[in-house]
């Protein structure tokens, strides 16, 4: 393919986010040259100052929609993109900043900012798919760089990316990890969490924090019942599901079910 065809144009867009997922792309040290060969990185403010307007074959979108301005801008990105791939917990579920969805943003801005009237923000942080059609969602806070390379490789040749939606438990078992919850009573979100990290935390004897959001058909209430047996109270349970993917349906419903005092 290299040299024989016009290379696909790639853009990387940032919305409300920490840039960590974009940096995963730069962190692909072994593959970055191959990527630069395979695609024309036409717009990537994190890596280059050059900016080319026009149409993009593949757009990677990081971040959530938190302002009226961004809600308009994402429409423009969609129009300019043949394939739109959203990357990371912010773009796929709203991110940690979606904790605002459970609270009064106006009150926050009054507490935090000297001139809250300068702050123009929406009351919610929402995933990109709430605003435009999305061709693929890559999970994670941050995303796994190997999965990013896999998704890009798949889109370049037109095959299905291998990013299974099953539990983190499957990754633990493929690696030979003994279950940290069964063996050590470690509270673990692995059984309800989307695979992709390679079971990072359980591999170091920690419970899973749910960075990749809910797996396919999650049963959070059944897991919460077990976590209660292990000693977690209602407040701890509500907080457990209220992190990087707090706004993802299954996690939001479960945290709200345990949030008796409305404090998250």
């Amino acid at each position: 393919m290299t040299g024989r065809h016009k290379r696909p144009r790639l853009a990387v867009w940032k919305f409300a986010s920490c840039d960590g997922c974009q940096l995963s792309l730069l962190d692909c040290e072994d593959e970055i040259l191959a990527l630069a060969e395979a695609v024309d990185i036409a717009y990537f403010p994190e890596a280059t100052r050059s900016e080319i307007s026009g149409h993009y074959d593949i757009s990677l979108v990081e971040g959530s929609i938190t302002t009226a301005h961004d809600a308009v801008r994402i429409q423009e990105v969609r129009r300019r993109s043949t394939k739109l791939i959203v990357i990371g917990a912010c773009a796929t579920s709203g991110g940690i900043q979606a904790l605002r969805n459970f609270s009064d943003v106006k009150e926050y801005t009054r507490i935090v900012y000297a001139r809250p009237d300068y702050i123009e923000t929406l009351a919610t942080s929402t995933p990109i798919s709430d605003h435009v059609r999305v061709d693929f969602e890559l999970r994670g806070c941050p995303i796994n760089k190997h999965q990013l390379v896999e998704v890009l490789g798949a889109f370049l040749v037109g095959r299905r990316p291998a990013t299974p939606a099953h539990s983190v438990c499957v990754e633990c078992k493929l690696k030979g990890n003994a279950c940290v919850m069964v063996a050590h009573d470690a509270p673990c979100l692995g059984p309800v969490t989307h695979a992709g990290c390679g079971a990072l935390c359980p591999s170091y004897n920690r419970g899973c924090y749910g960075c990749f959001g809910p797996k396919e058909t999650p049963n959070a209430p059944a897991l919460s019942a077990k976590l209660s047996e292990l000693g977690m109270d209602q407040r701890a349970l509500a907080r457990l599901y209220s992190t990087f993917n707090a706004n993802a349906d299954a996690f939001r419903q479960e945290s709200e079910r345990h949030d008796q005092d409305g404090q998250g």
Partner: peptide, 13 residues
């Protein structure tokens, strides 16, 4: 099914 996590642990072990 109300208790099962469909996590696949049983089949893996």
């Amino acid at each position: 099914a109300t208790r099962c996590l469909s996590c696949a642990n049983c089949t893996m072990v």
